[in-house]
């Protein structure tokens, strides 16, 4: 289980990274926190020719409070999100979710950009991004674009970010005083990938966004559930049941711990529990 041979580059600027990504013959793989990539390389399931370590670019590690949004650099680590007052104030859903991601030593290295860029269907942060209706800033030699969350995740380990592009920022709208958030996940052991999980955001105008993870081929929002829930200031048992029925629309995908039927059942359970805990 030793990683295959590769070359290593550690540029100290974003253009430096992007110019390496332009060279297809280098078969570059970006290395951020490495908490998913390194196991894949040790398993020899990932065999990049060139590793581009992006930790040498300090601006990728910034959390910026702008008038409209919170901008989180791709290299910001889970532990930094957890400890950030800005995040706690303006993105409380992130603060709720982080303790459920793996374990401290992993959170000390793993990054938000890495999680968003990987699109693991059972990971929490893609669902957070969806529930918060955030955006992903993607850079390449051709320029910078912003991809809305609901168009970013394409499938298992598949996103709208191409191999020549770098995720530079995650852009999240700032939480408003009357916004509410809910989160629930079920895992067999603390810190494991979820068997089923959901992130919920309720806006001031009672618009509700619901993003599941761990139940399908990617983190995904379910419009039919959002329709049932939106417009309600609180959630009665009958509204919850209607929302649960709407969860039947999800194209469930099983994994090692649970088949599709179990996922369907647990999706309804996490939905109910997240709604009960919404605040």
């Amino acid at each position: 289980m030793k990683a295959p041979d590769f070359s290593y580059e550690k540029p100290n600027s974003i253009p430096g990274i992007l110019s390496l990504l332009e060279k297809d013959e280098l078969e570059c793989q970006l290395l951020a926190g490495g908490q998913s990539l390194m196991p894949m390389m040790n398993f020899r399931m990932a065999t990049p020719k060139t590793i581009v370590d992006i930790s040498g670019v300090s601006e990728l590690s910034l959390i910026t409070d702008t008038p409209k949004a919170i901008e989180i650099g791709a290299m910001v680590r889970y532990c930094e999100l957890q400890d950030s007052d800005v995040i706690q104030k303006f993105c409380p859903l992130i603060t709720m979710v982080i303790p459920h991601i793996a374990h401290p030593a992993i959170r000390n290295r793993g990054t938000i950009g890495g999680s968003i860029g990987l699109s693991d269907p059972a990971a929490e942060l893609p669902a957070v991004l969806l529930a918060l209706d955030g955006k992903v800033e993607v850079s390449s030699n051709k320029g910078i674009r912003e991809e809305p969350a609901n168009k970013f995740f394409k499938g298992i380990y598949e996103t709208a970010c191409s191999s020549n592009e770098l995720i530079t920022k995650i852009i999240l709208p700032k939480a408003l005083p009357k916004q509410k958030f809910g989160f629930y996940e079920i895992s067999r052991r603390h810190g494991d990938y979820a068997m089923a999980g959901v992130c919920i955001a309720q806006d001031q105008d009672l618009t509700v966004r619901v993003a599941f993870f761990g139940v399908a081929e990617k983190a995904l929002r379910i419009a039919s559930i959002e329709k049932v829930l939106s417009g309600n200031s609180d959630f009665s048992q009958s509204i919850i049941e209607n929302a649960q029925n709407a969860a039947e629309d999800i194209q469930f995908e099983g994994d090692m711990n649970a088949g599709p039927e179990v996922k369907k059942h647990l999706a309804k359970v996490v939905l109910e529990r997240a709604l009960e805990g919404i605040k």
């Binding site: 908490q35 992993i106 000390n108 290295r109």
Partner: peptide, 9 residues
């Protein structure tokens, strides 16, 4: 801070 030394080059 603690890290996994098998996941860091």
């Amino acid at each position: 801070v603690t890290i996994r030394s098998c996941l860091t080059l």
